[in-house]
């Protein structure tokens, strides 16, 4: 057999691998990369004077205006998303821990319950929270009776927006945490207690570091969509609680200021990218693999 003949099948196999990648690459090129490039050029377009009409150009002032006009919206988006992420982590961790390590035969049912809200639409669920947090609803009435609400209401405050964000993205926190905790060998926890670590120390030194990949994945899956979300602020917040998602939406749909909306989108993308990079560097999850 010649060398060429021996190489043949290997090369063919490599070609098949590329062919299999093709649909994915084509999809991403058509629906992600090309729109992204188009969005970038839109963000630099120049106004023609008439509403909704723009011409090609390199108007970098769009970015300066976006930042100076909407910096508060950016800040609010990052803060609300940050609060929602931390809250979701605090709520999801014990729940995921319980499902992974203690639930026994109830585990499958509990996982179904975690995913169950997805069967109703995002919009609908957020509308439901409008009712739950309404001024005459039980929660608000009870908290008011206890004098725990400074504004006397929950709906149309930042609390409502953060609560909605936390609720809507909670499953994205629970599932990666569950996957990470489920992978931990229970013998490692036993080894911790065998080696003089109290349950709390075992958690701090063994369980928590081993669940870090889940914590990182969960916080990213919560923070990134929450920072860009506008439905929660739209339905549950007041005009003073609007996030950057609302600004982008208004500019695109109402003002038809496409360059401004595109610039806002690009700034949001860039800031999330920077935050995520710094965060992953800090968390140092690559060491765990």
């Amino acid at each position: 057999m010649t060398i060429a003949a021996a190489v043949g099948p290997a090369r063919r196999r490599a070609r098949i691998a590329y062919l299999l990648l093709l649909p994915g690459i084509a999809w991403l090129a058509i629906f992600f990369i090309i729109p992204l490039i188009s969005l970038f050029f839109t963000s630099l377009q120049v106004s023609t004077g008439s509403s909704g009409k723009y011409k090609a150009g390199f108007n970098w002032r769009n970015y300066v205006e976006a930042l100076s006009e909407y910096w508060e919206f950016f800040l609010r988006a990052l803060i609300y998303a940050g609060f929602a992420t931390v809250l979701a982590l605090v709520i999801a961790y014990p729940l995921a821990y319980f499902i992974a390590l203690k639930a026994g035969r109830w585990r499958a049912l509990m996982l179904v319950l975690v995913v169950a809200p997805f069967f109703a639409s995002f919009l609908l669920r957020t509308y439901a929270w409008k009712t739950i947090l309404a001024d005459d609803a039980v929660i608000t009435q009870t908290l008011n009776a206890l004098h725990l609400l400074p504004d006397g209401r929950i709906l149309n405050t930042s609390i409502a927006v953060i609560a909605g964000l936390t609720y809507n993205f909670l499953p994205f926190m629970i599932l990666p945490l569950y996957a990470a905790l489920d992978k931990i060998d229970p013998r490692l926890i036993e080894a911790g207690s065998d080696l003089y670590a109290s349950p709390f120390t075992t958690f701090r030194k063994v369980t928590w570091p081993l669940s870090m990949p889940g914590v990182v994945a969960g916080t990213l899956l919560t923070f990134i969509p929450a920072a860009g979300d506008y439905i929660n602020a739209e339905l549950l917040g007041s005009t003073k609680d609007k996030m950057i998602g609302n600004a982008i939406q208004t500019n695109f749909i109402e003002f038809r200021d496409y360059p401004m909306a595109s610039a806002l989108s690009f700034i949001l993308m860039a800031s999330i990218l920077i935050i995520v990079t710094v965060y992953i560097r800090r968390a140092g999850t690559e060491e765990l693999v």
Binding site: D185, R187, L188, E190, A191, G192, S193, D194, L195, Y196, A197, S198, T202, K205, V206, P209, L210, E287, L288
Partner: peptide
């Protein structure tokens, strides 16, 4: 368990995967 003068070598060793050998032994 964590107060007993007894230590265990587990069947699957149960070494802490996130710590190096030195830190495992020092635990």
């Amino acid at each position: 368990a964590y107060k007993r003068p007894v230590n265990t070598v587990f069947q699957s060793y149960a070494l802490f995967p996130h710590l190096d050998i030195f830190e495992n032994v020092a635990f």
